[in-house]
Amino acid sequence: MLKSAGSGPAVVVCNTCRHSATEREDADGRRGGTRLADALQHIRATEPQYQGVEVQQMPCLFACKDFCTIHLRAPGKVGYVLGRFAPNEEAARAILDYAVRYADSAHGQVPYKQWPDGVKGHFITRTPPEGYLVE
C-alpha cells in the first residue's frame, strides 16, 4: 500500500483529482490532477530555482471537494494541503514559488507577505509534524 519516496521538501500532487468543481476530466479525457502534476514536473525540470523541492504524485488525497489538490511537506515542518487550483502552469508556478519559500523556512511557516498571489485562498488544512504541535 505504501511506496518509498524522497524524504526532503516535496509537493505531493493528487494525480486523480477532478479537473474542476463541476468536471471530472477535461475535453481530452484527462484528470485535472494529472494535468497539474505534468505542469509541476515540467516547470521544476526546466527552472533551476525549483530543484530543492521534489514533485511527487499519488492517487487521491481524499480532498475531492477541493479539486486539483496538493500536499506540501518536509521533515520537521508543518504540512499543508492546498486545493481548488486550475490545472495549468500559472498555478504550478505559484505552488512551486511557495514551496521554495516553505523549504527555506525554519518550521514550514511562510510569512503571509511572502505568499505568491496564486496560493492565497487555496489552503485547506495544516498538519503538525510528527511529535510536535503548532503554538
Rank of each mutant, 00 (worst) to 15 (best):
G6N: 13
L61K: 14
G118Y: 07
D26S: 08
P87C: 06
L61V: 00
M1Y: 03
G52S: 15
M1A: 14
G131F: 04
K3Q: 13
H19N: 14
K113V: 02
H42A: 13
G6E: 14
E89I: 01
A99G: 11
P59V: 06
I124L: 15
E54S: 15
G33K: 03
E47T: 11
A21V: 00
C64P: 06
V12F: 06
M58D: 05
S105C: 06
H19Q: 11
A63L: 09
A92Q: 00
E25T: 07
G8S: 12
E23N: 10
G6I: 04
V55N: 00
A106L: 07
A5G: 11
A63D: 05
E54Y: 10
R73N: 09
E23F: 02
V12Y: 02
G32T: 11
C60D: 06
D66H: 01
D104K: 13
C64N: 09
D66Y: 00
G121D: 09
P75M: 09
F67R: 00
S4D: 07
D104Q: 14
G121L: 13
T16M: 09
V13R: 01
E130N: 13
I95S: 04
P87I: 08
H71P: 02
L82N: 05
A103I: 02
G8L: 08
E47M: 13
H71N: 14
D117K: 14
Q56P: 12
E135G: 12
L36D: 01
Q114G: 01
I70R: 06
A92Y: 02
G32Y: 03
E90P: 03
A39W: 03
L72F: 08
G32F: 04
V12I: 15
V11K: 05
G118M: 08
R73P: 01
Q114D: 14
T22L: 09
A10Y: 01
Q41L: 10
Q109M: 06
K113L: 10
K120D: 03
Q57F: 03
V55K: 05
R73M: 11
E130T: 06
